[in-house]
């Protein structure tokens, strides 16, 4: 088990450094030749440990007592619906008050159309949310974005009900 323990430590280290590095453009990152990829590919899983749950903070709870971690978008739109203004203000304040905290914005699209183009549409939605958070006090190094396009639907189905649940940005606090 010795090798596993060492590998685990290495993985955790990679995961943590991967997070803090996320918002800093690193031209050398593309030149990383990870032979076999096992270390690099599993490196992120240390950070992924939080994906199963969420931290609860008073300042994140809305009037209804809900945290509000998902923002939905209209068809073919990346503009923020007015109903989400307060919700994003709470997240921005939370980030501004907790500089050690960071959030990952996961953008998604519905299943229609081309897959890589949908990655672009999901990212555009993440960026809308990111800009709102930055404007209201969060700092750039606290926020990273990822787009899953149509690859991780929240609702299964090929109707407008499913589509409207899948056009979304999920806010994931990573620490």
């Amino acid at each position: 088990m010795k090798i596993s323990t060492m590998a685990l430590i290495a993985l955790l280290a990679l995961g943590v450094s991967g997070c803090s590095k996320n918002t800093i453009p690193d031209p050398d990152a593309s030149a990383t030749a990870a032979d076999g990829g096992a270390d690099a590919s599993t490196g992120g899983y240390g950070a992924d440990g939080t994906s199963g749950g969420e931290f609860v903070d008073d300042d994140l709870l809305g009037p209804d007592g809900e945290m509000g971690m998902v923002i939905y978008f209209d068809f073919d739109q990346s503009e923020l619906r007015p109903e989400y203004t307060d919700l994003l203000a709470r997240h921005a304040t939370h980030l501004a008050n907790n500089p050690g905290t960071s959030a990952r914005l996961e953008g998604h699209a519905d299943e229609r159309g081309s897959r890589e183009y949908n990655i672009g549409l999901g990212e555009r939605r993440s960026q809308t949310v990111r800009r709102m958070l930055l404007i209201q006090g969060a700092s750039a190094n606290q926020i990273s974005t990822v787009s899953f396009g149509e690859e991780r639907p929240a609702a299964v189905g090929s109707d407008e009900e499913a589509y409207s649940l899948n056009r979304r940005v999920e806010i994931k606090y990573t620490q």
């Binding site: 995961g15 991967g18 996320n22 593309s30 990383t32 030749a33 990870a34 032979d35 076999g36 990829g37 690099a40 590919s41 599993t42 490196g43 992120g44 899983y45 950070a47 992924d48 994906s51 990952r104 996961e106 990655i119 990822v146 787009s147 899953f148 690859e151 994931k172």
Partner: peptide, 21 residues
């Protein structure tokens, strides 16, 4: 999307070795 980050890999079929490019 391992680790919730998109990455591009090049994998050699015969050996299974892959490089994160």
């Amino acid at each position: 999307f391992e680790g919730n980050q998109s990455s591009i890999f090049v994998q050699t079929l015969r050996t299974g070795n892959r490089v994160k490019v």
